[in-house]
Amino acid sequence: MSSEANGTPQYLVAPPARARNTLVGTSFASALVLMYFGALIAIYLSERADVLRSGGTWIPSGTSIMLAAPSVVLWTLLFSIGTIQWAVYSTARNDRRHLLLALGLTALFGVAVINQFFFMFRQMALEIDGGSKMAPLTYTILGSFLAAVVAALIFLLVAGIRSLSGETTKPNTPLIVSAAFYWDSLVLIYFIIWLAIFVTK
């Protein structure tokens, strides 16, 4: 039987070395997520500029865009960069206990971000049917970011489970590095959201 029967070619010299597939995939996925949020924020700023140029009001009456809560979210995410990098450091040293602790703390920060988002929604009191062009865009951006955080938490959970089952040894470091890369991209995205929506208003 030909070796191609199962799509496995034979190599004359040596099989290809196992590549860092997860890291490559995550890099592309992060670029994709960055483009998605970049597009949303571009639409938001372009619409905002149009409304203001025509003499309209961008933030509807009764809505308050406070800076305190979004800034706390930013600080929470900035702290989480430290903990996720701690996880990367631990996995490089094959230190499973600290790895789990770091992943757990990062996840806790993630849950805190979700909690603070719901507080922010209540504080803003932005009605989606209020007739303002701002409302659907703001909810699209913030809602999408929440979904991205949930995806990151699932990624951390998978990494945590794999490390518990003993898979997160040195050769598998890319999994944790990938999770950290995606997490860091999210922090960057939130920083842009914070500037575009909450600082610029």
Binding site: M35, F37, A39, L40, I43, T140, S144
Partner: peptide, 16 residues
């Protein structure tokens, strides 16, 4: 990979 997320953003905005 860089342009279709923009389309997805358009669709998401419409849907919301």
């Amino acid at each position: 990979l860089l342009s279709l997320p923009v389309l997805f953003a358009n669709l998401m905005t419409m849907w919301v």
